[in-house]
Computed example of a mutant assay.
Amino acid sequence: MRIDLTGRNALVTGSSQGIGLAIATGLAESGAEVVLTGRSRDRLDAAAGSLRDQVPGAAVTAVACDLTTEEGAAELYAAVPAVDVLVNNLGIFGSRPPLEITDEEWRTYFDTNVLSAVRLIRHYLPPMTRKGWGRVLNIASDSALVIPAEMIHYGMSKTALLAASRGFAKEAAGTGVTVNSVIAGPTHTGGVEDFVYELVDRDLPWERAQREFMRLHRPQSLLQRLIEPEEIASMVVYLSSVQASATTGAAVRVDGGYVDSIVP
């Protein structure tokens, strides 16, 4: 299968590193013009440079803004009025004893992981439907379905994101625009390395720490290793393509078999 996104522009939030940067790189490799977002101009510039090194000739722009606020979203809209592919990857996570999660933390997780995506969909979906083509992809998590005891505020936010995705898919019904969620399993990123070392012995070398984390905290994974960001990106690139035109309103799993279910 040859996926060709030439002539399309794609916006990937939270794309200065990790899964977001891998997704942006995969989209650029398929010919899309890519917009990176993040709060740090320096990190965005470094990410854009890395992407261009990996995909020579790639059309890449970067917009520094805080998408957890209406003001930051407005800055993005001014710079990028419309897109063909919207990938809502921005998110935060962390472990916290359930009874110690404060009201403020609950709101922060909802605002960052859910409302930032809803806000962008509200802006970018109408031009897509008028055009008759578009892709909205929300990066969810296995934690939406298997709520971790140590991070239920995160799990809650990703469950809400699945619901929002399904609802917006209904709003876009019959327009040529698809809206889907990608359920990412435990993935190897810099942030996840820090998270792993919160839960296992910090003196362990990374490969042993990863195996210990999977054994103790994610034993149901059939992959029995962390997923690489490029593996998540491959699914996103496919769902962004013409070939995925009949997939909408779905929660597509790239979870290494983590969720013990025969349906998404």
Results as ranks from 00 to 15, higher is better:
L239I: 12
V177G: 04
G257L: 03
R225I: 11
G256E: 09
S143N: 14
T6C: 11
V80T: 10
G256V: 13
L11E: 03
E71K: 13
S221W: 04
V254H: 10
S157C: 11
G72W: 03
A78N: 11
V182C: 06
D111C: 02
E231Q: 14
A233D: 03
Y197E: 01
T69H: 02
Q220K: 14
G249T: 11
G49K: 03
G18Y: 08
R215Q: 14
D45E: 15
V254T: 11
A246P: 00
V87R: 03
A47I: 08
A28V: 10
Y238F: 15
V60A: 08
T68K: 03
L216D: 14
A149K: 11
V200E: 05
A28E: 03
A10L: 07
A149E: 15
E105H: 12
S241N: 06
A140G: 15
G176M: 06
S245H: 04
I19Q: 10
S95D: 13
L99Q: 13
R41C: 00
G249I: 12
L223H: 07
L86I: 08
S143T: 15
T108Y: 07
G132T: 04
D255F: 06
A47G: 07
P81K: 01
D103Q: 14
P126D: 14
G49N: 12
T37W: 08
Y258S: 06
V179W: 03
A48L: 01
L44S: 10
I262E: 12
E228S: 10
N9K: 10
A82V: 10
G256R: 01
A46G: 12
V146Y: 12
E228A: 14
I227Q: 09
G174H: 04
E230T: 13
V192C: 06
L204S: 05
N88E: 07
Y238G: 01
A73S: 10
G190L: 04
Y238N: 01
C65W: 06
E29K: 15
V177W: 01
G185F: 05
W206E: 08
V242M: 09
G132L: 06
R122C: 02
P229I: 07
A10M: 07
L120W: 04
D255K: 00
A59H: 09
L99N: 10
E212I: 01
Q54H: 14
V237P: 12
M128T: 12
T68M: 04
L204H: 09
L99W: 14
A144P: 12
S240W: 03
A24L: 04
L5T: 09
I23R: 02
H153D: 11
S30P: 10
A244D: 09
V242H: 13
R130M: 14
E193N: 05
F93P: 01
A78P: 07
T175G: 10
S157N: 05
L99T: 15
E230A: 13
R39Q: 15
A74Y: 03
S234C: 08
A74G: 08
A28R: 04
S95R: 11
A74D: 14
R130P: 00
D45K: 09
V242G: 07
T159Q: 05
A58G: 06
D84G: 13
W106I: 12
H188F: 09
T37G: 01
A140C: 13
A47E: 09
F213T: 08
S240E: 00
L162K: 03
P126Y: 13
L11G: 04
K170Q: 12
A140E: 10
R39W: 09
A48D: 05
V12Y: 01
E193C: 00
L5Q: 09
D194K: 13
